[in-house]
Amino acid sequence: MGLNLTSMIDVVFLLLIYFMVATEFKTAEESSPMDLPAQHDGRSLMFDNEPLVILVESSGDGPHDLRIQLEGPWDDIESVSGLTQFLRANKINEFHVTGLFKDTHPVLVTPTEGARWEHALATYNAVALAQYTNITLAEPVTKPDVLQ
């Protein structure tokens, strides 16, 4: 009495296909949510208090080749991780009541006209990583003096 291997091979191939497909789904695209305020007849966005403006400029083609400058009397920011650290360090919460910004403080990520999308998005992500909730990708600016 010979063992019939055909059915077993069928089932094994089906399982193989299933796991290949499941693995493919795990590495699918991801997305980062952004609230998009509706436009009101050309009026610019209104902020309750003065927003924190973050200027972004690409200095090369690599993912980390960008320059970040905060508008105002702030020290230079070296990298996107440095920006996250700065924002976390200055956030008001129950452990840090002397912080400068609430997590709802408006943050305006303002790339220059020539900035690469990956650099604008990396900066946006760095602010989101510091758990600020009111982040806006603003209108691009021409290269400001601070980034010359």
């Binding site: 590495t27 997305s31 949510p33 609230d35 998009l36 305020p37 509706a38």
Partner: peptide
Amino acid sequence: IEAIRKVGTTPRLQLVIDGK
């Protein structure tokens, strides 16, 4: 983004990134 914003309602925008 501005063209999407002109839709008038407040659509939720998802910025798609590479998930690998």
